[in-house]
Every structure is written in C-alpha cells, then in structure tokens.
C-alpha cells in the first residue's frame, strides 16, 4: 500500500430510515482521497441512497431520518454549523439521467460559478473552456457554445453535466449510475474521463455494471438489502471475495 493515502470521508455506524423502513444498516467505511470508490449491488440495495447521504441530497426527501456520523475532512456533515449549500459545493453530484438545464451550453457550465458570485466575463470564458476540456467535450461543442444544451446527444449531455460540476471546483464528485442511460461508446468516453479526473478529485460512483466497477475503481463496496456486505480493494473483491454473498453476486448467481 502507498503511504500518502488519506481519508476524505469517514462513515461510522450510519443508519438511514425512510419513514418506518430501514434503508441502510450500520454502514461504516472510509473513502480515500483521489481514488475512485465504486458502490455495487442489486437494485434497491441502498447504494444510491448511501451516495445521496454524502452531499445530503436526501434532505430533500420527505420522511428520511439518519443517525450515525459522516466525517468529511474530519468535520461531521450533519453537524449544526454545517451549511448544506457549501457542502454541496464541495461535494457535487452527477445524476443517472443527464439533466442539463434548458439553456445554452455556455450558460450550463457557467451556472455554478455565476451562482457563487463570479461575474467577470473573461474569467467565466476561461472557466467554461477549462471545464469543457476537462470533461473531454470542448472539441465537440466549441462551435455551438451558445446553442441550447438540449440539442446535444445523451452522452454529450452527460459530459456537459460533468463539466458543469467541475466548473464549481468540487473536492468530491458523486456519480449515480452516470452511464446507465448511455450507449457503449459514450460509456467508454466517460470511463476514460473518470481515470483522468481521479488525479484531482475524489470520486464515488454507483454502478450496476460490475465490469465498469472492475475497470475504473480502486475500491469497491458491495451493498445488499441495506447492508454493506463487503468493502475492499477492487481487485481483491472481484478475485477473492471474502463473503459468499459477494461471490454469488459477482459471479452472476443473482442480481
């Protein structure tokens, strides 16, 4: 193991209830800085719910109750002095379906910097170009920056959403099945992109595609029915799983 591996998130004994149903049961895990952590498991296992804990997107859902602690750089994200808006600026999210806003490509990317107070036109131009280049989209959209983002293909839209997120310079990027609505070629592009982004960002990705987890991630957590069954280095988890249920899942016996 390398020595410079640091924690970004430390999750301790996290329980999440949706009304009376317990959706996550005493989850404890550490998410490492500048690594890609994959969350896998069958539908309804709690992996997306867990992801949405990390930037408190579950706050928007009626009837969700959470106990346990989640530390981001040693600070409890549920602490009383935490500003959710600021937390989401540090921990951004890319969703399952591309959700560009109905505005131009440029305005989509400039949206985040603008709401955080950036007004300088030439600064914005720079941020937009840099973010689109980081998301490997610049070459495809540089000649239609001021046309509606809704005219892009699904794969381009998803990379635009990634660019939009990078423009606010988050520390962590959460991705909820970012390629499940895309064709194989677009998926490949996004996976290549993930490997580049890892040098600057901590990435947590939910995927139901086990090959994808194996291809891109450093660590993998396997969720089942609200429990985290197994968590470890991706290679180990896929070649020598400790738990029988993990082995059954990755060999395709269920799910």
């Amino acid at each position: 193991m390398e020595v410079n591996v640091e924690n970004k998130f430390v999750v301790q004994n996290l329980n999440l209830f949706y009304k009376d149903v317990q959706a996550l049961r005493s989850i404890s895990m550490e998410i490492m800085k500048q690594q890609i952590t994959a969350l896998i498991g069958p539908s309804g296992c709690g992996k997306t719910t867990f992801l949405r804990v990390l930037n408190r997107m579950n706050d928007l859902i009626e009837g969700v109750r959470i106990d346990g602690t989640v530390l981001l750089d040693d600070q409890d994200i549920f602490g009383p002095d935490v500003d959710v808006v600021n937390l989401r600026k540090r921990v951004g999210m890319v969703f399952q379906r591309p959700n560009p806003f109905p505005m131009s490509v440029y305005d989509n990317v400039a949206y985040g910097p603008r709401i955080h107070g950036q007004k300088n036109k030439s600064q914005l131009d720079q941020i937009v170009e840099k973010s689109l280049r980081s998301a490997a989209l610049w070459d495809e959209v540089s000649n239609r920056l001021f046309k509606s983002a809704l005219g892009l293909s699904g794969g381009q839209q998803q990379r635009l959403c990634i660019a939009r997120l990078l423009a606010v310079e988050p520390e962590v990027v959460l991705m909820d099945e970012p390629t499940s609505a895309l064709d194989p070629l677009s998926t490949l592009k996004i996976e290549e992109l993930l490997r580049d982004l890892k040098n600057h960002y901590t990435i947590v990705i939910v995927t139901h595609n086990m090959q994808q987890a194996a291809r891109v991630s450093d660590s993998t957590a396997f969720f089942l029915n609200g429990d985290m069954v197994e968590f470890g280095p991706t290679e180990t988890l896929f070649t020598r799983p400790k738990d029988q249920r993990t082995e059954d899942y990755i060999t395709g016996r269920f799910g």
Partner: peptide, 26 residues
Amino acid sequence: PHAHREGSLALGSTQWQTIRRVVLPS
C-alpha cells in the same frame, strides 16, 4: 422536471437561486 432542481442544488445553489435561475425561466 425534478432533475433540474436536483442538478442545481447539487452545484451548491440555494433554493431561491434554483427557482429564479432554473425553474422560473423554464
């Protein structure tokens, strides 16, 4: 769509910014 609101909030915008800049224009 709810996804537009979530997308905006996930970038660290406040609820009012989301309404004014995304929801009302669309």
